[in-house]
Amino acid sequence: MDIAVKEKPYWNPYIAGFFLGLVLLASFLLLGWGLGASGAGSRFGAWLSYLVVPDHTLGLASWSSYFEGGAAPLKDSIVFGAVGVFLGGLIGALTAGRYKVSVGRGPRISVPARFALALLGGTMMGFAARLGRGCTSGQALSGGAELALGSWVFMFAVFGGAYAFAWFVRRQWL
């Protein structure tokens, strides 16, 4: 479903960052909190788990609060935010002529191996985002702008963990 638009260049990173910062600031001003993403994944997991094993799900301490007082875990602002990120990404890709069904990988890795690493890395991040109370959006970006101490620790730890691990997965990318 390629759209016949000539691919536009990316924005200059400083301009893109300025725009992203304005979006974050708008979230602070309108809602009183920053951006988020991983929480939506967690809520989706809780919702799925509830479909399969409802009683067990309600007994999981880190998920039970999503259901408190008969609440629906997916009717939460962070889920709407995540849907928005998808829509915004789609609008961006279509208008820039960059929508293309493909697999992003380096020249030295097979498609199944890339899928396996994507799932593994996603699982690591899902776990880590619960432990660290957020991901690069909710902690590093939003908490960083709020000057939250733990968010800055988190941000440096993310860079540290990624640089330390980059060597092991270099065949995936280079």
Binding site: G104, L117, A118, L119, L120, G121, G122, T123, M124, M125, F127, A128, A129, R130, L131, G132, R133, C135, T136, Q139, V153, F154, M155, F156, A157, V158, F159, G160, G161, A162, Y163, A164, F165, A166, V169, Q172, W173
Partner: peptide
């Protein structure tokens, strides 16, 4: 959490 998320970042892309 940050260290593990960073590792997951470079593994998943």
């Amino acid at each position: 959490g940050g260290l593990v998320l960073g590792a997951g970042f470079v593994v998943s892309g």
